[in-house]
Design a protein around this nucleic acid. Structure first.
Lengths: 133, 133
DNA sequence: ATTTGACCTGGAGTGCACTCCAGGTCGTAC
DNA sequence: GTACGACCTGGAGTGCACTCCAGGTCAAAT
């Protein structure tokens, strides 16, 4: 199957502008064109876009995604380097999750404080309202 | 205790420029000044900076941090709104963690593919190298 | 007395990842 | 045959969160 840029945008969740932008910066190989010169994205293109958006979600900078994209064009010989990039990204994602988990705990603590303030404000112990915010 | 801007930067993990920037955009109330007009950060300032960096880590935009900071200046009356902001942020962090967890799974899958390619490349079944990268 | 180093101010510059725009080309619908 | 909508190009503009700079003040060290 092949898809117009609008359809590819819909399916990938990226904007039309972003699709053209990704192509310009060589994140995406130029897709095929139809008779009228319009982009015709393949399923492979869509799969690659899907993976790219995952990498983006992990916070990988475009620079690194470009490196990965470029390695991909060099075939099997680059598989080791590609794997290394993914392993490093995996590590950074795991770290980020742990960090966010820590923030979650702090938020819970703060939220709980506010909940307590709410309870006390309903008529108990004047002077207790100013718990450090 | 009070701290010079350099010391506050060291303790908060923010740069000196960022501390002045946060003050300019009203994320941080202007700290006290010493006799020579230099900033003298208090422990309270440092605690607030610590919490701000947590919020930042969660991906909260500066705009929202400013809102929270502004509410804080309005005392107890704003506690409900502040709690609501934190609850919303908590939700968004939990969502982000789940999203990252999904990416982690995909990375693991890809990494495992590469590991398999590596094993096969060492002399088995020619033609299997081009597993979709 | 001057040099040094940390700090001050207002404002300009940076890098990232898009996002928008003007002006133009197609193929189909009326 | 012209109006329309989707698409094309190269290039400019945007928002965010800093980061850097020039020119100046001040206290302590030489």
């Amino acid at each position: 199957m092949s898809y117009s840029i609008a359809e590819a945008a819909r399916r990938s969740g990226l904007s039309i502008d972003t699709l053209r932008y990704y192509e310009r910066i060589k994140l995406l190989d130029p897709p095929a064109r139809d008779a009228a010169g319009r982009r015709a994205y393949s399923d492979d293109d869509l799969n690659w876009l899907g993976f790219l958006t995952k990498l983006r979600t992990t916070g990988m900078p475009i620079k690194s995604m470009r490196e990965y994209a470029s390695l991909r064009r060099h075939g099997v010989a680059s598989a080791g380097r590609r794997k290394a990039l993914l392993v490093e990204q995996r590590r950074s994602v795991a770290e980020r999750i742990a960090e966010l988990q820590g923030c979650l705990d702090i938020l819970d603590y703060k939220i709980d404080n506010y909940a307590q303030v709410e309870r006390n404000v309903l008529g108990v112990e004047p002077g207790m309202e100013e718990i450090s915010a």
